[in-house]
Amino acid sequence: NMTTNERRVIVPADPTLWSTDHVRQWLEWAVKEYGLPDVNILLFQNIDGKELCKMTKDDFQRLTPSYNADILLSHLHYLRE
């Protein structure tokens, strides 16, 4: 019986294949993992993996503070390698 913190996010390895639900799961995981403040996951609700991967730093900064944008982008970049 796992707690929420221990729950593994199971999403496709390639972020471009993510559904909007996968994006939400990834964001929820990242918020907990990195202790990100002020991430409004609802702002990302219509973004799927293909859109997420096209987003620039400016795009991320429209949805979340700069600090969060940096961490989310670097993790996304890591996943795409």
Results as ranks from 00 to 15, higher is better:
T4S: 07
G49F: 01
P65I: 03
L73W: 10
L76D: 00
V11F: 14
L42E: 11
L42K: 11
V39T: 11
P37Y: 11
T56L: 04
D58Q: 08
L27V: 08
S74L: 05
D70F: 03
T64S: 06
W29N: 15
N40W: 02
N68D: 12
I10A: 15
Y78V: 14
H22G: 05
I41E: 09
N5T: 08
D14L: 01
A13K: 09
G35C: 09
R8I: 03
T4R: 06
P37S: 14
N46Q: 06
K50W: 09
S74V: 06
L17S: 15
F60A: 03
Y67E: 13
L43K: 14
T3G: 11
I47L: 09
T20E: 12
R62G: 09
W29R: 11
R7N: 08
T64R: 01
S19N: 11
N40A: 05
K32N: 13
Q25N: 05
I41R: 05
T56V: 09
P65A: 13
L27N: 00
E51K: 10
C53L: 11
V9L: 14
H77T: 07
D21F: 13
C53S: 06
D38A: 05
V39C: 12
P15G: 01
N46G: 10
V23R: 00
M55T: 01
D70Y: 04
E51G: 12
L63V: 08
A30M: 11
E28D: 06
Y67M: 06
V11H: 15
N46M: 04
K54E: 14
T4L: 10
I41P: 10
D38G: 11
I71N: 02
N5S: 07
L17G: 14
Q45R: 09
Q61H: 15
K57G: 06
N1Y: 13
P12M: 02
R8M: 04
F44Q: 05
T4C: 11
S66Y: 05
R62N: 12
P15N: 00
T64M: 12
L27H: 00
N1A: 06
D48K: 07
Y67N: 15
L52S: 00
K32T: 10
P65M: 13
M55F: 06
T3Q: 10
L72S: 01
M2I: 06
L43F: 07
D58G: 08
Q61I: 15
S74N: 13
I41K: 12
T16A: 12
P37F: 06
T16R: 08
L79A: 11
L79T: 12
D14A: 01
L73F: 14
V11C: 15
D14I: 01
A13R: 13
G49W: 00
L52H: 01
L72Q: 01
W18F: 00
L79I: 14
V31M: 11
V11T: 15
H77F: 04
I10E: 15
M55V: 01
N40I: 03
T3N: 10
K32E: 14
K57Q: 06
R80W: 04
R24E: 05
H22E: 12
L27Y: 02
P15V: 04
V23S: 01
F44C: 05
D58T: 08
N46K: 07
N68G: 07
Y34I: 05
G49C: 01
E51L: 06
V23Q: 00
N68T: 14
N1K: 07
E6C: 04
E28G: 05
Q61R: 10
K54W: 03
L76M: 04
F44D: 09
T16S: 09
Q25Y: 08
L36R: 01
A30L: 07
T20F: 05
Q25H: 09
D58L: 10
E33L: 05
W26Q: 01
Q25V: 12
Y67C: 15
M55G: 01
Q45H: 14
T64H: 03
H22Q: 11
L73N: 05
V39K: 04
W18E: 00
A13F: 08
L52M: 03
L73C: 14
E33A: 07
Y34N: 09
D70G: 09
C53G: 04
S66K: 09
L27G: 01
Y34E: 05
K57I: 15
M55L: 11
K57A: 13
H75W: 00
T64N: 12
N68H: 08
D58W: 06
L63N: 02
L27I: 08
E51Q: 11
P15S: 02
D59N: 04
T3M: 13
N5K: 12
S66V: 07
V31C: 07
A69M: 05
D70Q: 10
T20S: 09
P12Y: 03
I10R: 14
E51R: 12
D21R: 09
L36M: 10
P15A: 04
Y67Q: 14
R8A: 08
T16E: 09
S74A: 13
N5D: 14
N40L: 05
R8D: 15
R62S: 08
F60G: 00
P12N: 10
T16D: 07
E6K: 13
T56R: 08
L79S: 06
L17W: 10
C53K: 03
T4N: 10
R62F: 07
E51S: 12
Q25S: 09
F44M: 06
M2K: 06
H77N: 15
L79C: 15
A13E: 15
H77M: 04
R24P: 00
T64G: 06
R7H: 07
T20N: 08
L73D: 06
I10V: 13
N5V: 11
W29E: 15
W29M: 10
S19W: 01
S66G: 10
W26D: 00
A69G: 07
L42H: 08
T20A: 12
Y78L: 15
E33D: 12
N46D: 12
K32H: 10
V23Y: 00
L36S: 01
M55K: 03
K57S: 11
